[in-house]
Every structure is written in C-alpha cells, then in structure tokens.
Design a protein around this nucleic acid. Sequence first.
DNA 1: CCTATTTAAGACATTGATGTCCTAATTATA
DNA 2: TATAATTAGGACATCAATGTCTTAAATAGG
Lengths: 144, 144
Amino acid sequence: MALISKSSEYGLRAALYIAARPDEAHVSVREMSAQMDISFHFLTKILQRMTRAGLLASTRGAKGGLALAKPAAKITLLDIVRSVEGDDLFRECILGLAGCGEKRPCPLHRYWGKERARLEKLFRKMTLARLARETARDGLRLAD
Amino acid sequence: MALISKSSEYGLRAALYIAARPDEAHVSVREMSAQMDISFHFLTKILQRMTRAGLLASTRGAKGGLALAKPAAKITLLDIVRSVEGDDLFRECILGLAGCGEKRPCPLHRYWGKERARLEKLFRKMTLARLARETARDGLRLAD
DNA sequence: CCTATTTAAGACATTGATGTCCTAATTATA
DNA sequence: TATAATTAGGACATCAATGTCTTAAATAGG
C-alpha cells in the first residue's frame, strides 16, 4: 500500500516537471508522458482534474499545453493530491472506522492522529516553488 | 488513498480483538467477523496469512479458533501489517520511482524519507500489549 | 464412532483503479 | 481557409484488491 495513489504520483511529477521548466511556455502532455514514461491518455485525464481544480491552465491546439495557473509558491502538494484524489487524504481513520474521532476513538486514534497531522502539515507547507528550485539545483529526477 | 490496505485494517482489528480478550481461549473467526462486521471468508484468509507468519496460532475443529502465537508485548503493528501486505510498507518512494534512494533521489526523497522513518518507528515500537491495555482501560472500539 | 464445529485452501465474482482508444473541439501557422 | 497539433471527454479494457462460495481436513464432545 502506498500513501498516495498512482494518479497522485503522476500528478505530482507532472506539476514538478512543469514548475521545474526553465521557460514559462506551455508544456504538452505528449512531452511529459514521453519524458516520464507515463501513459499519455491516463496522464491527460489526471491533468484535466488539476486544471478543473484551478491549479493548471490549459490551452488547446497547436503549441498548446499546460502551465501553472498561479505562482508555484502558491501551489502546495496538498492542493495537488487533493485535486486528484479527493479531500479525504489525511482525514481518515487508519483502521477505516467511519465514526472514529475524539468522541469515539479507535485504539490507534491518539497515535495516528498525531502522525496524520504531521503529514498533512508537510504537504500543506511544501510548495511547488521550493521543490522545483531544489530539483533544478540538485538535478533531482522525476523518472526512473 | 489510505496508508494501509483494507486487509491490514482487518488484520490489525482482529489482532487487537484477540489481544483485548479477557480470557486466553481461542477466538473463532465467526465471532470476530460478526462483532466487527467483516466478511467471514475474507477475514479468514487474512488471519491465515498472519498464522503462517507466526503471529497467530490456530486450532481447527470444535472450540477451535485463533490465539496469539506469542506474548502480546512481542507483537508489533509492523509485524502484523507486513505479514498481511508484504515487506514493502514504509520502504517505497512516495512518487513510485523504482531506483529512488540516497544516490538518485526524487524531489521528495529528503522530506518523505524522514516521515517514512517516523511512521516505521511508530509501527515498530507499538505493541499489541500496549494497545490492548489501553483499549480495555478506555473502552476503545474496534467497529463502527 | 458420529456429528457438529471450525480452520485451510482454492475457485470464482465484483469492484475500483489503472490504462487504452476514438472522436470532438480548439488553436497556431502556412 | 486548410492542416497539423493539441487538450477535452467519453467508451471501453485490464488488473489488482476485495468479497463470496464450496469442499476438505481437523477436533471436541456425545
């Protein structure tokens, strides 16, 4: 099991790819899918969700593609992952119990609640700007 | 997306159910599946994996059922989850990149690596004994 | 020894996530 | 205006996780 879905992984990698781009031009899905070895059509649909969520701006037609819809410093990992797989991430009981909360906690609630909050904070504080800067500076990779 | 699979959730809940039992008798899958509203046959297969992994001891036939194979203080959450869903938990790259590591890190490696280690430690340190004690003391619940 | 009970194990079905394909709409450029 | 490039969107296929069912093996107790 992974913390986030494959769709989210792809969405994050694509967002980083766009943000780490030197120029500001639109990037095509075709290029990203080829460079990162991700299914073109599948990636397309993931990026559509991010576009509908207001994170990306798309232009159709020749020379079209995707760009960030706002400054990279204003886009967080949490924004991206939640735009792709819904708002429940970092809000669920680790044992899957529906009514788990302060009132009716499961045996792991006190422990998992802390870790979950840490993770949520990390994702909420981490911006695309910061990661793109480090990616460019240290030559980090977005594909195998 | 959840941190652990539904199978692991069920396995953890069942382990806690057994450990929190006042007496030391074997507990039947039928009882657990009814009490926690989990599919009987599905739960059976999960508990078989935990039995094969040496965490539970099963006895067939009338009055049979499952019991812990060793003291609850010697069984950790990590033992349980890994017995159910394999040893990769808390070892994977959050972007799903195969070769991600210190040598060829992904943009999130430095951040996720820390959190992943924290989570792994929590699961490695947390024993069934401790959770069962708290569950009994505070009346915590294992079902909705 | 017989019967009811219970786990073991494998076949099969269902479901949700992932992946593929085709057509429509839009846009730059010749 | 015509063409090629590109995203939008829906239909469909595949796969892994989840869930169901059936039979076999083992065991306690009458």
